[in-house]
Design a protein around this nucleic acid. Structure first.
Length: 588
RNA sequence: GGUCCCAUGGUCUAAUGGCUAUGACGCUCGACUGUCUCUCGGGAGAUGGGGGUUCGAUUCCCCCUGGGACCGCCA
């Protein structure tokens, strides 16, 4: 049975009908013998009018304050000429209240419940149930719900089977820090909350389910960011017998369906570009490029290798490179002081400085222009396709420093020069990821994605002794949207011999490998099908579709940046008895 | 683990080495029958904690606490 009396949905169709509505007092305007109350519920506002015609109701309205919960019964009237309010859906009508009841009183809330409220993040999280009353938060969470509904429908229509995997799981090496859960029955042993359902979904493929889908919670005990929470939700799928191309095509159809269902956008999936990881790094300096920004990184190492400017020639002589971005209109938009701020900021990426030149009258100006002859200047302008008014920002260093620096500057300048079209949905696939990356901390090669990622067949030999594992690329694919990593997928290893080689390359002894993943390796001996899958981050997708810049805005009860929850104050100390039961009692 | 920034009524914020610490919203009392940023009149309400410099600290310095951003980290 659907509810039909939402305050925010009462409109002209209800004129002359008697209705009863319930909701929260948004605003009371008191004229003595005449009181208006804007009543709010999840659908919006409706104006209640109270007058001496119904003295009892008027007395109730006189008592009411903001955020009181009210029930009101009355006849819906068309508003008089000039009294309409175009700002609300129900603005053509009002309810002439004959009978009203205060269902609950409210203390004065710590902040006013309205969109754009300027209260501190901590305060809003501490009173999250009040913050969630804001129309924007109501919209965000309903949008999130729609993404899930759309996805479940899509997956059901494509023969996916929804299967839940354990939350109390096994701790595995590799990857992020685990959240651990002590076992009462086995003192000293721990469950781990899953960082992803990865291994379980591979086992489900081994079990023959063929197409699995789950909206799954995942947990990682790492520091937070604006787009990262310790617990988050993945829309997770795995398939058997599908190629990488098949899976990418399926995901394209899936996101097309979501975009249509949720934000009514017709996504042209033929326009989604596929870039290799190497190309993305070369052109954008990042593995998750925001393709809404037109300008790219230009490698000018060859042009400036023999330049008089020691910072450039020196960086190249030391095995580094020189790259630049040409910021459109940046020459006028940025003062020397602004650029100094950038210089300061990019030091956190390891950049030692920031060289810059402005393009004017088809020549270069700025403090370092004197190091470049007219020919060199022309060559630089040619190489960067810069035009008059552009600002050239240079990074000269090792490749990773150059890339990180210019990736930041590209995004930052585009943002504050408003060169990004907010209505554009720039999806992109990033493929051919390196299989390994080097961990300074562990002094060994680790998985770029995870240890079950299938190498490119031609690269299998790199897993052998004596080969350089850095060369190996993977059958992996990330989906990027507007500069955010939306999802990460790969074809998986389904044969034990390859999986063992992979674990060996990662530094596992055979014993360690079987200790950690024995159940999976053993399973592979019983006929596991070729398989691959992907997981899309629900929180990030919801954030982007809702037009928010922080993931907290699409999660009902998020953690703050210290991974605590200001409302419940979790995590909290527990009773000594609980620790005792778990065999965790401390000595003192 | 590291770097940087911030802390003034319920909320957001202004200002100052010294006089009654500014304003808006909210709250409260009163008046008001067409408001929807109601209007008008009155009122209550603040410098996070500790230490230092100083005749005097909300202001300057240090520590703590809390918050934010970023780097590392995030298979």
């Amino acid at each position: 049975m659907k509810r039909t009396n939402y305050a925010g949905l009462i409109d002209e169709q209800y004129i002359d009908q008697t209705v009863t509505v319930q909701g929260w007092v948004q605003k009371r305007r008191n004229f003595g013998g005449l009181i208006f109350i804007d009543l709010r519920d999840r659908e919006g506002l409706v104006q209640l009018t109270f007058s001496e015609k119904f003295a009892d109701a008027l007395a109730v309205a006189d008592e009411a304050r903001n955020e009181f919960v009210l029930e009101a019964t009355g006849v819906v009237r068309r508003r008089g000429a000039g009294q309409e309010n175009a700002n609300i859906k129900s603005g053509l009508i009002e309810i002439e209240v004959a009978q009203a009841t205060i269902l609950a009183e409210s203390k004065t809330p710590p902040f006013y419940i309205e969109d754009g409220v300027n209260a501190g993040e901590e305060l809003k999280l501490q009173y999250r149930y009040l913050d969630l009353r804001r129309p924007e938060m109501q919209r965000n969470l309903r949008l999130r719900s729609k993404i899930m509904a759309s996805s479940l429908k899509f997956m059901d229509e494509h023969d996916f089977i929804n299967i839940e995997t354990p939350i109390l799981a096994k701790s595995t090496p590799e990857g992020a820090r685990d959240y651990l859960v002590p076992s009462r029955v086995h003192p000293g042993s721990f469950y781990a909350l899953p960082q992803s359902p990865q291994i379980f979904k591979q086992l489900l493929m081994g079990a023959g389910f063929d197409r699995y889908f789950q909206i799954a919670r995942a947990f990682r005990d790492e520091d937070l960011r604006g787009d990262r929470q310790p617990e988050f939700t993945q829309m997770d799928l795995e398939t058997s017998f599908m190629t990488q191309d098949d899976i990418q095509a399926l995901v394209n159809d899936w996101v097309k369906a979501i975009m249509k269902d949720v934000v009514d956008v017709d996504l042209d999936i033929t326009q989604i570009p596929t870039l290799t990881y190497d190309e993305a790094m070369r052109r954008f300096g990042t593995d998750k490029p925001d393709l809404r920004i037109a300008y790219e990184l230009q490698d000018v190492s060859e042009v400036v290798a023999d330049s008089e400017f020691g910072v450039f020639s020196g960086a190249i002589a030391n095995g580094g490179q020189v790259k630049t971005i040409a910021v459109p209109g940046g020459a006028d938009a940025y003062s020397r002081k602004d650029i100094d701020k950038f210089t300061d900021y990019v030091k956190r990426y390891g950049a030692k400085g920031l060289a810059w030149l402005k393009v004017a009258d088809d020549a270069l100006t700025g403090p370092i222009a004197k190091f470049f002859t007219a020919d060199k200047q022309a060559a630089l302008i040619e190489a960067t396709k810069a035009v008059n008014g552009d600002l050239l920002l240079f990074a000269a260093d090792k490749a990773d420093v150059v890339n990180a620096t210019l990736d930041y500057l590209r995004r930052e300048t585009a943002k504050n020069l408003q060169l990004i079209d907010d209505n554009q949905w720039a999806f992109a696939w990033i493929i051919d990821w390196p299989l390994f990356e080097y961990s300074e901390e562990d002094d060994r090669w680790i998985s770029a994605h995870h240890p079950f990622t299938m190498p490119n067949v031609a690269d299998l030999h790199y897993l052998e002794d004596g080969e350089d594992p850095h060369q190996a690329h993977a059958q992996s694919y990330d989906l990027v949207l507007n500069g955010f990593e939306l999802g990460s997928g790969s074809i998986r290893i389904h044969r034990m011999d390859i999986q063992e080689k992979m674990l060996k390359a990662l530094g596992f002894t055979k014993e360690q490998a079987h200790e950690a993943f024995g159940f999976l390796l053993e399973g592979m001996e019983y006929g596991f099908p070729p398989m691959g899958g992907i997981a899309l981050g629900l929180d990030r997708l919801a954030m982007l579709l809702a037009g928010q810049s922080n993931i907290r805005e699409v999660i009902a009860f998020p953690k703050n940046s210290k991974a605590t929850e200001p409302m419940t104050e979790a995590p909290t100390p527990v009773e000594a008895k609980q620790l005792d039961d778990l065999g965790l009692a401390t000595q003192d």
